[in-house]
Design a protein around this nucleic acid. Structure first.
Lengths: 345, 345
DNA sequence: CTGTTAGCGCATTCAT
DNA sequence: ATGAATGCGCTAACAG
């Protein structure tokens, strides 16, 4: 019944104009307190609620922000979104979620749809397969704030919040070296050359070796699929080495888990024989009977920061274009899998 | 520059009326093919895109649907949302995400905000603390489709997609019995009486015992906090029993994991001494060195079904109100932790 | 302090 | 087949 009451309904009932009602509702300074009260009362009585759609059309601001991620049910992205929501909800923004499933075409569709829906900004993690930047240029042409999280494109006018993958890898490798490892193997993702983050992780690993005067050995780089099976394959390869590594730094927790399972099945002990550390701090790493060390990506913080960058941009004076590139330092989560030395927990 | 082209821009350029442009764009039957083509061409040229906001205001349909969950970064809810998105995106709907953090006040705020944003429907999992139904009644009064997922309220006019928790618990308990367990302990959540699902799980457990002529022993019910610590506490209690249980069915994987860690530290073997099975099929359960059996909640399916129920409601003729209550059968994920008998994997 | 007018962008009657 | 007019609900500019 109370399907929808508009300001006109209130106006009619009070024999005043809709404009006055609008002003009263918005607490406009030039309105008598009397009418304000009367309006508020009848608004309540009629169950009036502001239609944000009309407001959005009028103002050109929808108060919605689009968030596009590869998959929403991946813990990392879920946490990023949570960070964004936590930060933006109190400011009156709503979050519209889209998934690309790492499909560039879906990415383009999503962006177009969000733009048509008049979102006030877009926060996104690009596809693994994103080749073209034209769709992103369109966002910028429309003066819609664009913020990349984690997986980014280098575009003038776009902001970004990323993790210092190089540093994370460096820290992890350094940690293994400090544990006494001399022959550290690196597990990287097949086709990593096309994804910045894996390149950076490889570079961090290499640099750490260099800084510690450990020779780089290209035979100690194994490229495999980023899943359990890929890890197992890699583990098998490792078991066939003449000289086994004494440490593994993996660019992914999943690959590492596969490798661990395989290696253990050969009677090799972790961390005694081989100390290992992964990347991403997947939830399962800390729940294992023998918890796995990993590099935490601070997903929640990344989301929060991306949200703040958006707010800065949206609140900036018209003519000023803010472009901000935030790089977060990762955190090492040291657990049993990489501790050769005895340490009090 | 191409900030925004409207149908008026196209109309002006072609010296025709906006109405004609609108019709041409919508492939209206009573428009000459010639103009259709001309309009489409200049639309492309001008980079025209439909403003969904205006459309929404006009039509009263925003093509947005609100989804409210306790937390988006919990795997279960992430999967539900993914299911919803997968199903609704191809139909042109967008998903607006909100979190309650299990706070009833935030729940009310979220619903009001979504209603004001003119969403076409709301899919939600209620708070653990939801006491009042008035806010949900408001949704229904507005004739906005309301679909509960997993955690539901029994309201006339609202639909629901839930898991058969009773059956899941029954299956899990039955499985333990089949493994030869005689003294099966049940781990339930503190204050479970206020949340339907835990009650149902307890009931399923009880019924399975009954059906197998195993006496119910209230000392074998332990109530604890739903987290690792709570599980550890429970594990300690169990270790102090005069007569140890030989099986555990836990209403939560997290509690179970805590209990397992505690129990193992006392030298008790799993599954040999105590076979265990949890609930929810959390991702970590299958990644463990000794994978944990669990009841899968089919989150993805629940999301998809909820989306379909929404579509049915929204597409139903005006006067017909569809109320649908779907109950999904859970799936047992049997892994090492509950297999006393040797089975070929 | 309040009323009138107009417009955000679109689709839809009613004419023609 | 097309144009003119109207309204979705709201706010802002301009009068008064």
């Amino acid at each position: 019944m109370s399907d929808k009451a508009t300001i006109y309904d209130i106006a009619k009932k009070l024999n005043i104009s809709a404009a006055t009602v609008s002003r009263a509702l918005n607490d406009h300074p030039k309105t008598s307190i009397k009418t304000k009260i009367r309006v508020q009362e009848t608004a309540l009585e009629l169950g009036y609620e502001q239609n944000k759609l009309a407001l959005a059309l009028k103002s050109g601001r929808s108060n919605n922000i689009g968030v596009i991620v590869p998959r929403i049910d991946i813990n990392f992205f879920g946490s990023i979104i949570r960070g964004i929501e936590d930060e933006l909800y109190p400011k009156g923004y709503h979050i519209i979620i889209c998934q690309t499933h790492d499909n560039e075409e879906k990415e383009i569709q999503n962006i177009n749809a969000l733009l048509n829906a008049q979102v006030d900004g877009i926060i996104t993690s690009i596809t693994k397969n994103t080749k073209s930047t034209t769709i992103f240029d369109r966002i910028l042409e429309k003066n819609t704030p664009l913020i990349f999280v984690d997986r980014k494109l280098n575009l003038k006018g776009a902001s970004s919040v990323t993790l210092n993958d190089f540093k994370g890898a460096y820290m992890a490798t350094q940690h293994l070296i400090e544990q006494g490892c001399k022959r550290i193997l690196h597990l990287t993702v097949l086709g990593h050359k096309s994804v910045e983050i894996y390149k950076h992780r490889l570079d961090g690993y290499t640099q750490a070796l260099l800084d510690n005067n450990i020779p780089f050995d290209k035979n100690l780089i194994i490229e495999t699929e980023n899943d359990l099976e890929g890890g197992k394959k890699a583990g098998l390869k490792i078991m066939k080495f003449n000289e086994s590594p004494d440490g593994i730094f993996s660019s992914s927790d999943f690959m590492l888990l596969g490798a661990i399972k395989e290696i253990k099945s050969h009677g090799v002990n972790i961390p005694e024989d081989i100390a290992v550390i992964g990347f991403s701090n997947e939830p399962f790493t800390k729940f294992m009977e023998n918890p796995i060390s990993s590099v935490d990506q601070c997903a929640l913080d990344m989301g929060k920061l991306a949200a703040r960058v958006f707010l800065e941009q949206i609140n900036a004076p018209q003519l000023i274009k803010i472009e901000k590139n935030v790089v977060l330092a990762p955190k090492l989560k040291i657990r049993q899998s990489s501790l050769k030395k005895v340490i009090c927990n």
